[in-house]
Each structure stands twice: as structure tokens, then as C-alpha cells.
Design a protein around this nucleic acid. Structure first.
Lengths: 110, 110
DNA sequence: TTTATTTATCGTAATATTGCAATATAATAA
DNA sequence: TTATTATATTGCAATATTACGATAAATAAA
């Protein structure tokens, strides 16, 4: 108990859930938006930008990365993180498809 | 510690994170997709459809509802759940906007 | 080599989530 | 009223997440 039953759901359902979960925290939304805002995809300025300790930011970055939403490149001592377009596209595409399907049916019962 | 610092983020960031988190579980993705699939927005067939116990489904429905992603209407003894278009539109709009912004900048550093 | 800088990992405490059995609630049917 | 049916809530155990201090690892600079 207390363990998500991923095996009962499809790979796609699990994949979308994983990405949605990764963005299911305001700090990770803020990190994502910061990466979108800066032109040069600067790295650990995120620590200065957000009101969280460095290990916490590092952990959030790890989760976003493992969900396929950001990428990281080593640049000297620092690491350059930026948005992974493919991951974002998957998520965006999913919600757009769902929205279109919903508009096609008459969702009037509630 | 262990408590999300929502007060440090904007209302919008928290709102998007809340909705993303609600869909950050494969069972809730499956519920959402089921509600999209069925024409009449039938209710507790979800319990028969998914491999989870009734209290568990009820709990997931509650989370989707409190995140503003589904609505529920009492119909006799049963309850009719269906997708809340406004919530879905907010989430879909957010990701579409982010995607468009990303396409405008040259995201080539990583 | 030594020192500084940057990021990751470890360890741990606090809190949250997941799942379900048992039970409660609420509306309908008999 | 007394079932019956459908959904919600409670309580609890297992697991996961969040946050951070301390520390490690890795590269760059002196």
C-alpha cells in the first residue's frame, strides 16, 4: 500500500502522469518559467532567483530532467540547464488533443 | 521542513502546479480519459473500469475536483462526473503559450 | 598543489500521498 | 419503515516528497 499501481495503466498514461507530476510543484514551474525567460540558458542563477536552498533546487532540477522536461550541459564548473523541447511538446500536444476532443463532444451533462 | 513553500510563488504558478499535480498520477489520467471517452458522463462505472478500490477512486475524484479539472452533479443515488472545460483550458492554454514562447527564442544552448 | 566555485549527493526530519478495509451518509425502492 | 444502492469519509500502514545542513565531487584559478 501507498505504492502507485503504475503497472495497471498504459505507458502513455504513465508518461504523461510523470511529466505532469514533475510540473506539479510551484518551484518547478518557477524554474521552468525562468529557463524560458533567460536568453542564454544560464544555470545556477536559479538558486539566486528562487527562495530555496541550493540542494533543494538541485533536487528539483533532477526531477525535471528525469521527466524529460529539461536538459543539462556541463560548462566548466557550472551546468547549463534549458528546456527540453520534445518533452514540452509531448505534454502540450496531449492537452491540446484532449481539449480538441472535448470540444467535439457536447459536454453538457454537468 | 517537508512543506511546500507556496507563499514564495505567484498565484498563477501555484494554480498551474496544483492542476498539473492533480494529473500527476496515472489513475487520474485514466479517469480523465475515461470521462472524455464516454458520451453520457457516467459516474461510478469508473470503479468498474479501473483496477482500484472504490474509496481510492473516490479520493482521486475528489482531488481532480478540488483542482478544478472535473465537476460532479448528483443524479439520484449516483453522481455524474465530467470534465470541467475551464480547468482544462487553463492548463492547455498555459502549455500552448509556453510552447509558443519557446519556439520564438533560439533554444540552442543545450 | 592549494584554494575557490559550482553542483550533486547523503542523511534526516517533517509532511504528503497512495491504497484499502471498515464504516458512514444519502437517496431511492420495496 | 426497512432494505438497497451509490458514493464519501475515517483510520491506518506503506511509501513518497519536500527541504535543508553537511559534505562530496569536479573543474577552474592562483
Amino acid at each position: 500500500m501507498g505504492l502507485t499501481k503504475t503497472e495497471h495503466f498504459t505507458d502513455k498514461q504513465n508518461a504523461i502522469a510523470t511529466m505532469a507530476k514533475a510540473l506539479g510543484h510551484p518551484a518547478r514551474i518557477a524554474i521552468f518559467e525562468y529557463l524560458l525567460k533567460v536568453d542564454t540558458c544560464i544555470c545556477g542563477d536559479i538558486v539566486n532567483e528562487l527562495p530555496l536552498a541550493q540542494p533543494t533546487i538541485s533536487q528539483h532540477l533532477k526531477e525535471l530532467k528525469s521527466a524529460g522536461l529539461i536538459k543539462g550541459n556541463i560548462e566548466g564548473t557550472s551546468i547549463c540547464y534549458c528546456i527540453d523541447e520534445k518533452g514540452l511538446e509531448k505534454l502540450q500536444g496531449y492537452f491540446t488533443t484532449i481539449s480538441l476532443k472535448l470540444n467535439k463532444k457536447n459536454n453538457k451533462c454537468c
